[in-house]
């Protein structure tokens, strides 16, 4: 109970918000973006934060999920759930085949390789007009039904996204505390040392790469059905970089750090709209200031601060009790 206390509080807030404000723009429109971005950031954090493997191509898997849903339902007439399964299959094969050679690379070279992968997929979305609809994308996806229950309003979508996001967060928290999670952080710490301890580092890295790609893929399918529309620019390398920024902004290696980072980066542009032409400038400045003063990430920094204060108080109490 105690281990997951934060998770329960977080779930409660997430699920109560739309009940309190069922028709609020920030909840049912911006909220959807926030929820999907949290799922993506948390899945990326598994790879980046726990296993220490940077990826600048996460948006590609997100996009492949979205496009699979769009193409298989509209062009080939499959049911949404079959299309999602196809998407997962494609992403599984692609990420599995690529994981070994790509994850052999390190640091900036790994960043380059994942970036390249992301861009190649994006070029495919733009150029293969006959299949993908080119830059204008594909619109008119059918409504998704869960157990015969159609998801056709923003409010219903909120709950679907929220559920998916909470499952992702729970999985991430559990992985971190599991044997696999400890193997991951060993790989993060030092790959050679991990190998010495008998961890098959290539296998561990490859598994987490595939797993995080699959989560992004499902997120993409859901996103496509909710938006009713897919177009390439939602899956460009800019979005991949944005996801990396979310993870680092909140605190690399912390699930809730990714949650906080995703929340801030999704909500900030909405709040900055009023500044019109100054929006870009202010956005950049805020990003810089947070990273300069809280380099370990917003969430992690605050958590550490609270822990530190609690420790101080404890010390004081101990001192008082003994004197």
């Amino acid at each position: 109970m105690k281990r997951l206390l934060g998770f329960y509080i977080f779930s409660f807030i997430t699920l109560v918000l739309p009940i309190l404000f069922p028709d609020n723009y920030y909840v049912t429109v911006v909220g959807l973006t926030v929820l999907i971005n949290i799922s993506l950031a948390v899945s990326l954090n598994l790879l980046m934060g726990y296993a220490g493997q940077i990826s600048l191509g996460h948006a590609a898997f997100f996009g492949l999920g979205a496009y699979s849903s769009a193409i298989f339902t509209i062009k080939y007439g499959f049911s949404p759930w079959t299309a999602i399964t196809f998407g997962l299959l494609i992403v599984f094969l692609l990420s599995y085949i690529l994981s070994r050679p790509i994850l052999k690379l390190k640091g900036h070279y790994l960043a380059m390789a994942t970036l390249g992968l992301g861009i190649i997929v994006h070029i495919f979305f733009v150029q293969a007009d006959e299949i993908t609809g080119g830059p204008d994308g594909i619109s008119g996806l059918p409504t998704l039904s869960i157990f015969g229950f159609p998801i056709d309003t923003d409010l219903k979508w909120y709950f679907v996204f929220a559920l998916f996001m909470l499952i992702t967060v729970l999985l991430s928290l559990n992985i971190a505390d599991s044997r696999a999670g400890r193997a991951l952080s060993a790989v993060h710490g030092s790959e050679i040392a991990a190998q010495m301890m008998g961890i098959d580092t290539a296998k561990v890295k490859s598994r987490i790469f595939v797993f995080s790609a699959l989560i992004a893929c499902i997120a993409g399918s859901l996103f496509a059905h909710q938006q009713n529309f897919v177009s390439p620019e939602s899956f460009s390398f800019f979005f991949s970089i944005e996801l990396v920024t979310m993870v680092v902004l909140g605190g690399l290696g912390s699930t809730f750090g990714a949650v906080v980072g995703a929340f801030i980066l999704s909500i900030l542009p909405e709040l900055l709209i009023v500044f019109e032409d100054f929006e870009v400038l202010i956005f950049g400045a805020i990003l810089m200031v947070i990273m300069i003063f809280l380099p370990e990430g917003l969430f992690v920094a605050i958590k550490n601060k609270i822990a530190y204060l609690a420790f101080k108080r404890y010390q004081k109490e101990v001192a008082n009790a003994t004197s």
Binding site: V30, F229, S231, E233, S234, E270, I273, E276
Partner: peptide
């Protein structure tokens, strides 16, 4: 509102 030419922003 300024969409910056992005379809997702346009939708929002």
């Amino acid at each position: 509102y300024d969409t910056k030419g992005k379809a997702k922003e346009a939708k929002n």
